[in-house]
Structures are given as structure tokens and as C-alpha cells.
């Protein structure tokens, strides 16, 4: 009874090769770097877990990690409710549906560095529309390059503009899949519009929202391009998120070992938090 068909392995082989070349081998290279020191010329010295220990005890890493969590937290707290609200306000049928959908999808079609450049110019105090308006018309001292608060506000606004659409589109897909009978039954049962949201719309959107939250978490936790173009991590270190800091260490200082160790820890945190989110949000379904 133990005869198994070993041929099946051949069908997995192409995928295995693909994964090996685009994930496993690069990853192992990073693991290799993370335990060694190099001064170039392809000469390496064994360092063991030294880089990991140093990194986990470094204030610089703690600060970047703190900024990263704060940023992602703010992004999720704004984009998820806002996305749901916009999806609820969108028409379910009629000629405006395609118009709304295309308008929603537009920001997501723009390349990330272009988004960064757009908002950078938009926010410049002397020539940018937003910057000029804030400083001259409203009289608020707003300069992204000088004021950390202004930098944060601009990056958050930029991200909300760029990515809320994703939450909107996913929520909308969840909403339109609810059969009319649910709304009719709720009307007959005398449910308030809050009850309709709480007991019909939200439960039916749960699965797509899980995906939306996961995607937004991963994307915002790994944000690099827009911030790099807009502030380069400044003013000072105020917008130096993990990825920005990582690139500074790896390419700016050319500390390959510490950068590799940081990459691995960064990856582990992203994975862990995603897993936590997913497990928490789907734990009810198993019952």
C-alpha cells in the first residue's frame, strides 16, 4: 500500500526552480552576508550573530522601527474606515458605476516615484500649489523640508491619496456581492442603517477587508520609493522609516553585514505581524 507515484515531483520542479532563483537563493545570499564582515574585494570575515545583537540593541534601529509602526498605524487607521465609507457612498448600479471605478483606480496606476515627485512639487512652499496656498493664503508655516510635522502630514496625505482606492475597490466588491434580499429583510425587520452596516455589510465585507488590511499593512510597512523621492528620510531623521534606513546602511555606508541582518529582521517582523493579523481576523471562521 506504500506505492506512491513519485512522478508528481516532476510537475513541481519548474515552480521550485522559479522560487529558488527569485526567492530562496537571494534570501540565502542575504543570510550569508548577515553573519560576515566584508571590506570589499570579495573578502569576508566570520562574525556570527554580532550584527543581529548590535542591531537589536541599537537606538537608531529602535527609532526607525517606532516611526515605521507609527506610520503604518496611522495609515491603516485612516485608509480602512475612509475606504469603507467611500465604498458605501458609491452607487451600486447605473451609469456612474464605471466612472467611479475608473476615478478610484487612477491613483493606483501612477508609478510610485512619480507619485513622490508629484507630491514633492505640490508641497514645495515657494512654487507648489499646496505649499504656496498653505503659507500665503492660510498663513500656516508649512515646509516639508524644514518641519518634521509637515513632512509627516504630507507623506500620510500622499499615501491616503495613493492607496485608499485599494480599500475602496475591495470593499465595493464585497458590498455589491450582497444579495438584495438581505437589505429587504433588514427593512422588514426594522433595522436601522447602523444595524444594516454592523450586521450585514461589515460581516459580508470581512473577507475582502482582511485582504485589504493585509495588503495595506505590508505595503505601508515596506514603503520606500515615495518617501525617498519626497523627503529622503528628512528633515533630520524624522521620516527615516525602516526601508530608508536599510538603504542608507547598505548603499550609503556599504555595511553589507549589518544591512543583511537588518533585512532579515525586517522581513521577520513583516511576516510575524501579517500572520498575527490574519490569524486574529480569521479565527472566528474556523468555528
Amino acid at each position: 500500500m506504500k506505492t506512491q507515484n513519485q512522478k508528481a515531483w516532476f510537475f513541481v520542479l519548474p515552480v521550485l526552480l522559479l522560487v529558488a532563483f527569485n526567492a530562496l537563493i537571494p534570501m540565502m545570499t542575504v543570510v550569508n552576508y548577515s553573519v560576515q564582515e566584508t571590506f570589499g574585494n570579495n573578502i569576508f570575515f566570520w562574525e556570527g550573530v554580532r550584527w543581529f545583537e548590535e542591531l537589536l540593541n541599537s537606538d537608531r534601529f529602535h527609532a526607525a522601527l517606532g516611526r515605521q509602526f507609527l506610520f503604518t498605524g496611522i495609515i491603516l487607521a485612516i485608509e480602512i474606515p475612509l475606504g469603507i465609507a467611500i465604498a458605501l457612498a458609491m452607487p451600486r448600479s447605473g451609469p456612474w458605476v464605471p466612472v467611479c471605478l475608473v476615478l478610484m483606480a487612477l491613483p493606483m496606476l501612477i508609478p510610485w516615484n512619480v507619485v513622490g515627485a508629484m507630491w514633492n512639487i505640490f508641497a514645495l512652499p515657494d512654487i507648489g500649489l499646496l505649499g504656496y496656498f498653505m503659507n500665503t493664503t492660510l498663513g500656516i508655516d508649512y515646509d516639508m523640508t524644514q518641519n518634521p510635522f509637515a513632512a509627516w502630514a504630507t507623506i500620510i496625505t500622499m499615501d491616503v491619496w495613493h492607496w485608499t482606492s485599494l480599500v475602496v475597490l475591495l470593499s465595493y466588491a464585497g458590498l455589491v456581492s450582497i444579495p438584495d434580499a438581505y437589505y429587504q429583510a433588514a427593512k422588514i425587520d426594522g433595522a436601522s442603517s447602523w444595524s444594516v452596516f454592523r450586521y450585514i455589510q461589515l460581516p459580508k465585507m470581512k473577507q475582502v477587508l482582511t485582504i485589504a488590511i493585509l495588503l495595506r499593512f505590508m505595503d505601508s510597512f515596506n514603503i520606500y520609493t515615495e518617501v525617498f523621492v519626497m523627503t529622503g528620510g528628512g528633515p533630520g531623521n524624522s521620516t527615516t522609516f525602516l526601508s530608508i534606513d536599510l538603504v542608507k546602511i547598505a548603499l550609503g555606508q556599504f555595511d553589507l553585514g549589518p544591512a543583511a541582518a537588518m533585512s532579515l529582521i525586517y522581513f521577520a517582523i513583516t511576516l510575524l505581524v501579517s500572520w498575527l493579523f490574519y490569524t486574529l481576523m480569521t479565527k472566528d471562521d474556523a468555528k
Binding site: P179, A181, Y182, Q184, A185, I188, Y199, I200, P203, K204
Partner: peptide, 13 residues
């Protein structure tokens, strides 16, 4: 009035 639909409508949660 009360209405029972073709597909059972229940509040899942």
C-alpha cells in the same frame, strides 16, 4: 409584515 425569501436571509455574526 414579514417576508421569507428564496435564499435564507440570516444575520451571520
Amino acid at each position: 409584515i414579514a417576508q421569507v425569501f428564496q435564499f435564507p436571509v440570516i444575520y451571520d455574526t
